[in-house]
Amino acid sequence: MFKWSIIFENLPFLLAGAWTTFSLTVVSMIFATVAGLLVGLMNMFGGKVIGAITRVYIEAVRGTPALLLILIVYYALPRIGFNLPQFPAAAVSLAVCYAAYIAEVFRSAVESIPKGQSEAAFSLGMSQAQALRHVILPQTFRRVLPPLANEFAALIKDTSLVAFIAMHDLLFNAKIIGARTFNIMSPYIGAALIYLIMTTPVMQWSRNLEKKVE
């Protein structure tokens, strides 16, 4: 049976998990955004070989579960000598995964800028890199923010996958409370509420930005 008291009594433990969820999200997102921008640019402007390599990476990540990547990085890589502690292993996996999605966000934003913009930049004598830096990317900034905020909200939820490597995130801690108190419903509802408190403002912000861009 659902009991508020169970949530309140175990709130510090739930919040400790929520902190792990939040910090993991932020760290992964920062790396994923930087890597995603680089991968997206390499995919578009890196030439045939680099373009093909990055395309394979993007499609491979998009076509496999994020959980699989987490399990590979945490359990399989140590077998061949890459031993990462829990938090870095989780952050690397999620960043590698989300960088692929974010690369596509940047790609579609760059492609949405009219061709005349780069033609004008080139006609002034700019190189591809100069045109990107001074003309194209500044214009994509407003367009990438809403989809990036969406990815951020999705990442908050996907961090729950780290429960599979026994990381004490929000979901895993909720599960522990359930086992400890023999009340399974209450801690899960509590976790759901905390997830919503984290994701709702981000998604609302994304919607507001979208309206502004239009």
Binding site: P114, G116, Q117, E119, A120, S123, V135, P138, Q139
Partner: peptide
């Protein structure tokens, strides 16, 4: 250019 292509930002 016909479409000006000034930089809007």
């Amino acid at each position: 250019f016909q479409q000006f292509n000034v930089f809007p930002h």
